[in-house]
Nucleic acid binder design. Structure first.
Length: 291
DNA sequence: CACTTCCCCTGCAAGC
DNA sequence: TGCTTGCAGGGGAAGT
């Protein structure tokens, strides 16, 4: 599940495949809520455009185009961005994967989950946006056009600040976990890194955010910054579908301390890790280390 | 405004 | 074996 680190790693590795290139052809699947801009419009308006830059805000990727328009991509839960020369079994459907001989590297062919394909004038490898669960989003903003999805985002979570968190928490009573997942508070935090940061800060996810102390807000902010930075360094978390654009798995899943470790021993105190649903999301914590 | 619940979708694993 | 059920979850919309 791509959160800030996975999106940032994706950005860094797909950037050279996009920036400076002019789009020659656009293929899409049919209309669906995946396309906030209807696919027909997308095809019409993207052809002939040159991609000038690719940057990230929270979990969004934004590509600025030569005419001042902007392509906005969100990977959702299972979104993958990669080029046609990348190789990874994670780019393949289960059936295609099962048909592989051991050690065989299959070529990727756009399948029914490949919702957007960009071909370039210079003949560079095509870039695909594949998303099995279709929770991802594609939106083309006209020059000067804004969108609440972007406008509402809080500061990037890599710059999490304890004082600012405390400020944003005023008047709120939701569980601190839900608070951290609110993209208006911080942009980029998802389920994995919220749990990991709360563990490292020693705060239970279910605690009301109005009961979090100043010191704890500082600890949470520091934990978020370091966990997110570390995850980027290790290539992100490859837990289910995530794989970087060049087909390389991330390694941060090996450094998880609570996420997905329900029933396993806490690495600090050996108490079994607990799982509890908070705000419709599974949350993992150590009942002994987190108060 | 704050907060909760529901829902979009598909693949996989567990249970019968 | 093959079916059903449950679960994963970002985030918007609607409801309280």
């Amino acid at each position: 599940m791509p959160e800030l680190p996975e999106v940032e790693v994706t950005r860094r590795r797909i950037e050279p495949r996009l920036v400076g290139r002019r789009i020659a052809r656009v293929d899409t699947t049919g209309p669906s809520y995946f396309f906030l801009t209807p696919p027909r419009q997308l095809r019409e308006r993207l052809v002939g455009r040159r991609i000038e830059s690719l940057f990230r805000r929270g979990k969004y990727l934004l590509a600025d185009l030569d005419v001042g328009s902007r392509l906005l991509l969100h990977l959702g839960m299972t979104g993958q961005l990669f080029s046609s020369d990348a190789r990874s079994p994670r780019f393949l459907s289960a059936t295609a994967r099962a048909a592989l001989a051991p050690g065989e590297q299959a070529n990727f062919r756009p399948d029914k989950h490949t919702h957007l394909a960009l071909a370039f004038e210079d003949g560079a490898p095509e870039v695909y946006f594949r998303d099995v669960r279709k929770f991802g989003k594609v939106l083309l903003l006209e020059p000067g056009e804004s969108h609440p999805r972007i406008d509402r985002l809080g500061p990037d979570a890599l710059e999490a600040d304890g004082g600012l968190l405390r400020e944003s928490a005023r008047g709120r009573r939701a569980p601190v976990k839900s608070f951290l997942l609110d993209q208006r508070v911080l942009a980029g935090v998802g389920n994995i890194y919220a749990d990991e940061a709360l563990f490292r800060a020693g705060v239970r996810p279910g605690r009301g955010v109005h009961r979090v102390t100043r010191r704890e807000f500082d600890a949470i902010a520091a934990a978020l910054r370091s966990v997110l930075r570390r995850s980027i360094e290790t290539g992100g978390s490859s837990i289910s579908d995530y794989v970087s654009p060049d087909g390389e798995d991330g390694r941060f899943q090996d450094e998880r301390r609570v996420y997905g470790r329900t029933g396993e021993a806490c690495l600090e105190c050996a108490t079994p890790i607990r799982r509890r649903v908070i705000g419709q999301r599974s949350s993992h914590y150590c009942p002994a280390c987190q108060g």
